[in-house]
Amino acid sequence: MIFVVNAGSSSLKVSLYRSDLTRLADGTISNIGGNGTLKLDGVATTVTSDDHADALTQIQAALASAGRDMDNVSAAAHRVVHGGAQLTAPARLTPDVVQAIRDCIPLAPLHNPVNLAGIDALTAQRPDLPQFASFDTAFHASNSEVTTRYAIPEAQHQAGIRRYGFHGMSYANMVHDFGDALPDRLLAFHLGNGASLCAIKAGKSLATSMGYSPLAGLTMGTRSGDIDGAAVLRIAAELGIEATDKLLNKQSGLKGLAGDNDMKALLERDDDAARLAVSHFCYWAARHAGSAIVAMGGIDAVAFTGGIGENAAPIRDRIMQHLGFLGDLPVHVIEADEEKQIARDALALMGGTA
């Protein structure tokens, strides 16, 4: 079995897969560091966990009690948000790779440390267990320099200020699911609380809407998407850096426009703020799509994934109405499954059947 670990700032999500990628179990623990909830295959229990190591111990014990013996796990696979310019493909975790993940902490200060917490906790518990990592940024390593480079001085570029892109495991899973039917020039949307798009040509990322961080690009649930740097500087001068970070990442987007980042609720509302938020989300998705289509030199099909992309048909329809001038394009809906892609990556590195 493959044990997939996705460590968040105050949560831990795990999945178990067989070598044929059949999912055996899903589990989560919320509110690490206090009173939280352990959910295993839909059954919830109140728990208290001190840290990620404690949460990992509890969730493994719950899996064992449910008949999922962790002794049968042959490898672990982790989601790591940022691989920087060095970690551009899934990798087996060695001391050098773990150090490279640590070196990327300045690029993802909220994410890589907790990803490492999951890695460190499992290493302490199972030091002989092979461990692997997949990186959200890796799928976009095929982007050219002219795509990733900001027009800034060399010193800042060398310090890592460039476009990286995210949601890479979601897009990689999409490409895999298409198989031989993959369109040559695919406009791919990952729409959820975090939202992005990707220009995928011949299975490779040519351009994506997120940049140095997941803040850039489309209007999102609580993130602003693209905003003029001068506007950010003005807000920061008035509020300070930490408050500006919180405003742009947690209080903007749909929430900033309409007070709610639940797209289902917004679609059910009948007020000007909700209508503006929905229109903003769809319009700017289509505006960014134009840029992606230029990067590919045309378009053959569109695909949607993510919670909104899969479940909100009115949003898909409105985005496609904006793109109607392109003609009658095939539209696909692909189930998002980043955990399966992480397991698939690990099996491939192990020489398995992924």
Rank of each mutant, 00 (worst) to 15 (best):
V331E: 12
G8F: 01
N112S: 08
V175K: 01
R102K: 12
R18V: 03
S224M: 08
H322M: 05
S134C: 11
S15N: 15
I119C: 02
M220Q: 12
R344N: 02
A138T: 12
P95A: 03
R287D: 03
G351S: 09
L63I: 03
L21Q: 12
K246Y: 15
A343E: 07
S224L: 07
I119V: 05
M220E: 07
A354D: 06
R23V: 02
Y150S: 07
S30T: 15
L93D: 15
G240S: 14
G165R: 06
P153R: 01
G229P: 15
L63W: 12
S144P: 15
G33V: 04
A273N: 11
G290C: 01
H288I: 00
A265Y: 00
F281I: 02
G168M: 08
A44R: 13
L40P: 14
Q58R: 08
A195M: 13
T244N: 00
L182R: 10
M350D: 13
R149A: 04
D184N: 06
R223G: 05
D260W: 03
D71L: 01
S30Y: 08
N31F: 14
F135K: 09
Q321I: 04
K250N: 13
L122N: 02
D337P: 09
Q60I: 14
A61R: 04
M350C: 14
I59H: 01
D260C: 07
K264T: 06
Y171R: 01
C104G: 04
H157P: 11
G327I: 13
R149W: 03
K255M: 08
I105M: 02
P95H: 07
T46Q: 13
